[in-house]
Amino acid sequence: MSVDSWKVTLPCTRAEAEAIDAGAIEIDAVLMTTEEVEDDREHWRLDAYLEHEPDAAMLAALRALVPSAAGVEPLIEALTAADWVAMSQEGLEPIREGRFVVHTSAHPVPPPPGGRAFLIDAGRAFGTGHHATTSGCLAMLDRLAERGFANVIDVGTGTGLLAFAARELWPQAAVMATDIDPAAVDVTRENAAHNGVAGIDLVVADGALSKAITARAPYDLLIANILAGPLVSMAPELAAIADTGATILLAGLLETQREQVVAAFAACGCTLDAIDRRGDWTILRLTAGAERYVPATPPDPKGRDGWALDI
């Protein structure tokens, strides 16, 4: 079989893994960290997936992320398409959050009574529901089911899962799903077809500055499951497209980053309503101010590379 991509594996600590997960890292690879031993701060793993065989410069850049692995030879593997399919489904048991079940092709399950099952296979985009941030957002959305939303946006949609949940909960609402990565938007379109989800507008966009997004504003429900740094920098533009009293769900941040994110949105007139903490990760629900927020200066889109959360 032909080689489709490469995988580099190095050991790391939990602190190094958290720094990788929380930071915008300019490396041409998909980075994933995994806890090797439950509740053990020292035994984690970094897996880097690349389109090309790693050269010395790439290996040096990956080593720099995990200083604790100094002296350890990286494991380098050539991956075929079959390898990707096997890895993407390995260990991904169905998850259940409220009325929602999320499963892969390898572990199909029926929906619960009155609920909805989504088939989301791991692959080119992230957000299968198995990461605490995505499952936490699903739970938050489920708890909002009785509210009436008319205009919903999912910024950094990944696989489209959260947009699909919004469409299920509020079938009459307008729903838009955006991502900075065109591949993620393609995956969302494919997943929508697989799950029989219709009526979601898909947009490739950097943050909330696209005309396609602002033309549909204001939104009464905003979902942004990305990273803490981009959430802070994007707070003014997200608040600017929010309707008065809109509900805002934020995720992709560690508990240690919560105060910084809350403060950034408080400066834009938003108030914190609820927190769902899942391990080291935190999901926030906020309410936009009683008046539409207007930024004092135009939002600065610089430094946005890598704002989508890889989960």
Rank of each mutant, 00 (worst) to 15 (best):
R167P: 12
E168P: 05
E168I: 08
L169M: 08
Q172K: 08
A174P: 12
T178I: 02
D179G: 07
D179P: 06
I180Q: 12
P182Q: 09
P182T: 11
A183G: 14
V185P: 06
V185W: 05
V187Q: 03
T188E: 15
T188H: 06
N191G: 14
N191H: 14
A192L: 06
N195A: 14
N195E: 12
V197C: 08
G199N: 06
G199H: 05
I200G: 10
L202F: 13
V203Q: 10
A205R: 00
A205N: 05
A205T: 07
G207L: 02
A208R: 00
A208V: 03
L209M: 11
I213P: 04
I213F: 06
I213C: 03
A215G: 09
A215L: 06
A215F: 12
A217E: 07
P218E: 13
Y219P: 01
D220W: 05
L221D: 15
I223A: 10
N225L: 03
N225M: 03
L227K: 00
L227E: 03
A228H: 01
G229S: 09
G229R: 01
G229C: 03
P230M: 02
L231D: 02
V232H: 02
M234V: 03
P236Q: 02
L238I: 04
A242E: 11
A242D: 14
A242F: 10
T244K: 07
T244H: 12
G245F: 13
G245A: 11
I248E: 08
L249Q: 09
L250R: 00
L250M: 04
G252P: 04
L254I: 00
L254F: 14
E255V: 11
E255N: 07
E255F: 07
E255L: 06
R258D: 09
E259T: 10
E259S: 09
Q260A: 15
V261E: 01
V262A: 04
A263R: 01
A263P: 05
A263L: 08
A263W: 05
A264C: 02
A264T: 01
F265Y: 08
F265S: 01
C268L: 04
G269H: 03
G269N: 04
C270S: 05
C270Q: 01
L272D: 08
L272N: 02
D273T: 04
D273E: 10
D273N: 06
I275T: 13
D276T: 10
R277L: 12
R277P: 13
R278M: 15
